[in-house]
């Protein structure tokens, strides 16, 4: 088990290195001049050259890459060219907002997707199955930014029930962070007003973010359940007089959960990257928004930082899924 774990971690490390190389190359292939960006719109040549020296952009690319790698190894993501701020500090500031959004969206996806998948498998080809199928297909097909705008129009503009965007009302100062997750922090400090406010802001973006995830969990879980319910052990259990509830929840679902888990792992990474769209629509101050505003400005260090964080999330999520596989399926433990 330990060897397996070490192998997986080693592999993740290699992938991370590949990702670093890739992001570095992509950012430097882009035909823009970061020094001109740093110096400002009306800057003359001397100012641009000074900015180039300040940010070490006058060095040859291999040297810049080596420096980037060394800095990364020390946990330094470099400096944003547009703001001069440390990208690491910015990431630490914005990541909790994204994490909170993704956790809630994932919770929605799993808590609704799995039961609905089970339900539609049990009522295969019945009205419930058709309804969830339509729901799932549209969930995957709806572009998140469009769906987000639609929800804003409905719940914020027409019904006036929820705020349009942001993480808190502009008049509320966020409390000093404990975990950085507002919902958790407000509960920890017993500030229920703040909890309600944070919840009202996070609901719409979380729904938008969770929809594709919910839909794919639902579909995968349904087909796996249909498969599992056909198995001999289910027939055997039924013959032994095991209660239907136990058959579904313990015998079938446990087996159906394996591929579902894989999907959850993948979706975690996907969600981290789709925050780019959702956070822009809802002005959610997370790493997605940070990446977008930096990319538009041609500021690549933050984009590289966010890419690494998202990549890291992909890897960790899949690592955890692999380990959970071992827990759920004893055969894998021996292999």
């Amino acid at each position: 088990m330990l060897g397996y774990l070490l192998r997986r971690i080693g592999l993740a490390g290699l992938m991370l290195f590949g990702l670093v190389c890739l992001t570095f190359v992509i950012s430097n292939v882009a035909p823009s001049d970061p020094a001109a960006l740093a110096a400002g719109p009306d800057a003359g040549r001397s100012q641009i050259e000074q900015a180039r020296r300040d940010y070490g952009l006058d060095k040859p690319l291999p040297e810049q890459f080596l420096r980037y790698l060394t800095d990364l190894a020390h946990g330094d993501f470099g400096r944003s060219i547009a703001t001069g701020r440390s990208v690491g500090t910015d990431l630490a500031r914005y990541f909790p907002a994204t994490l909170e959004l993704v956790i809630l969206a994932m919770a929605l996806g799993v808590l609704l997707g799995v039961p609905l998948g089970v339900l539609s498998a049990l009522r295969k080809d019945g009205p419930a199955d058709h309804a969830t199928r339509i729901f799932a297909v549209s969930g995957i097909a709806l572009p998140p930014f469009w769906f987000g705008l639609l929800l804003q129009l409905a719940f914020a503009t027409w019904l006036g029930l929820l705020p349009t965007s942001g993480r808190l009302s502009v008049f509320t100062e966020p409390p000093p962070p404990i975990t950085g997750l507002l919902l958790v922090d407000s509960l920890l400090t017993g500030n229920f007003g703040l909890f309600r406010e944070a919840l009202s802001h996070i609901i719409l973006p979380a729904i938008v973010l969770s929809l594709p995830c919910l839909a794919s969990i639902l579909r995968v879980n349904r087909s796996e359940m249909v498969e599992a319910l056909r198995m001999d052990y289910v027939t055997a259990a039924r013959a032994h007089g095991v209660t239907p509830w136990r058959i579904v929840m313990v015998h079938a679902l446990k087996n159906a959960m394996l591929p579902t888990l894989a999907i959850i792992g993948l979706r975690w990474g996907w969600m981290m990257s789709s925050t780019v769209l959702v956070e822009t629509v809802f002005d959610w101050p997370g790493i997605g928004l940070y990446a977008v505003s930096s990319a538009i400005a041609g500021d690549f260090k933050p984009v590289m930082g966010v890419t690494l964080i998202v990549g890291l999330n992909f890897m960790i999520a899949n690592l955890i899924v692999d380990l959970l596989y071992g827990v759920l399926d004893p055969r894998l433990r021996r292999a």
């Binding site: 705008l149 804003q152 129009l153 914020a156 503009t157 006036g160 349009t164 965007s165 822009t280 629509v281 809802f282 002005d283 928004l289």
Partner: peptide, 14 residues
């Protein structure tokens, strides 16, 4: 800062 035009207009209306 509201980046998208539609929510910004909605914010004014509300």
């Amino acid at each position: 800062i509201i980046r998208e035009a539609a929510p910004r207009k909605a914010a004014l209306q509300r």
